[in-house]
């Protein structure tokens, strides 16, 4: 099924407020319940990672990622235009979050 091309509406911007590691996520759905605006829905497959449904409603509060009980399962993902920048005062090198 993965190779099939479907006719789909555009993807929301931004589309991935968090990255979920399927190898580590245990599908406990803590994030589904934590998110105050229902960005996620539970996966129909029990134990599988949740589905990001309302990505563009995310307000980047970060509670899903900070309250996730499984280390490494969920990584907060700043959208490209919001990635923070900083400078090392001594070297003057400017960095930006990847």
């Amino acid at each position: 099924m993965a190779d099939k091309v479907f006719a789909l509406p555009n993807v929301q911007t931004p589309s991935v407020p968090v990255k979920i590691n399927p190898d580590k996520c245990i599908g406990c759905n803590t994030c589904v319940e934590t998110c105050q605006i229902d960005v996620f829905i539970p996966n129909p497959k029990k134990g599988a990672p949740p589905i990001i449904l309302h990505a563009e409603e995310c307000w980047y509060c970060g509670c899903c990622a900070t309250d996730c009980p499984t280390p490494g399962a969920m990584e907060f993902n700043w959208p490209l235009p919001l990635k923070p920048r900083w400078r090392n005062k001594e070297t003057g090198v400017v960095s930006q979050l990847k």
Binding site: M1, A2, I41, P50, I51
Partner: peptide
């Protein structure tokens, strides 16, 4: 992994409303 489109691509169908 985790977005609606990824799910759709993998399953060939949108997830049913979960509630």
């Amino acid at each position: 992994m985790g977005t609606w489109h990824e799910y759709f691509k993998a399953e060939g169908t949108p997830p049913e409303w979960p509630y």
